[in-house]
Design a protein around this nucleic acid. Structure first.
Lengths: 151, 151
DNA sequence: TTGCTGGGTCTGTCAATGAGACCTAGCCTG
DNA sequence: CAGGCTAGGTCTCATTGACAGACCCAGCAA
């Protein structure tokens, strides 16, 4: 059996799995970039929001950007880095699952569509050879280059 | 602006976002189905593991299945329901992101390949018209049928 | 000089997590 | 049929994290 402590899912979840973190990311992907907007929209306690934003910045998922509103002093807002943008499939797949199983009877509150053609965006499982992978059963997991035997 | 309390990401994360839940799911997808195996492999405290499994069962993501080992009394193991299987893309996308940004220098500890052709499995963003979606910027979000105006 | 505003910090309470001891049903062996 | 073994749990208590609400503070404008 394989060691589990260099599992990248565990590492990812150490940051992403903290309470509210996904909600913060959702907000940023929706274009909400400022502390107070997030706080009011989501109801996250100030201190927790401060923590999560700090953490996401130190992890390199968000970056702070100064902005200046007419007649007000300079403030900072939060924007996605490339590392942050790359979380989009994660968020989309959670959304897809939630829409399928947890939506109200009237349906999903938000739809994602391809800008160019207007068709819904989905997150299918595929292989790099271009096949659709229909089920987890069609996937085999094997040790990768970083695998370590369990002690 | 749109109300945020029927957001399916938030609902999904209410369950999935608890500490250790993703790790439990990873184990189950790896074929680890028994309490003690999970506990030993992952180091999750007993009480927490009990909680998470209970919760995942009541959410319909796992189901309990009795099993009987030669010479021992009947025990229960945990298996994925269809709702649980449908979380596979979520886990895969987290894995892909983690492998890209958080792996040790020697690489990912685990690789997922398509059983039929041996090519790596990925979780691309696509639209139902069959186009690849390269960037979150190519995705437009719009209110769906369940959208509610904010009060 | 006073007030407003965004982005915070400080304080106290309560819930969740973690570590470790203890429990228990039923199967086996002596 | 007493005793040991085992998987899958409770029980207890210390530590950490979340939450609510008050407070702070820099700088711009009137």
């Amino acid at each position: 059996m394989w060691s589990v402590d260099n599992c990248t899912v565990a590492r990812a979840m150490a940051t992403l799995g903290e309470k509210w973190t996904f909600i913060v990311l959702r907000e940023v992907f929706l274009g909400i970039r400022r502390f107070d907007q997030m706080r009011v929209r989501t109801g996250i306690p100030r201190q927790v929001l401060t923590n999560r934003l700090d953490r996401l910045v130190t992890e390199g998922i968000l970056r702070r950007e100064p902005y200046r509103e007419q007649g007000l002093r300079t403030r900072t807002e939060y924007r996605l880095t490339e590392k942050g943008f790359d979380l989009y499939p994660v968020l989309c797949s959670v959304l897809a699952w939630g829409d399928r199983y947890l939506a109200d009877p009237e349906g999903s509150p938000v739809e994602l569509v391809h800008r160019d053609c207007g068709a819904p965006v989905v997150v299918p499982l595929r292989c790099t050879a271009g096949h659709d992978v229909d089920s987890p059963r069609d996937v085999t997991s094997r040790p990768g280059p970083g695998a370590r035997r369990r002690v």
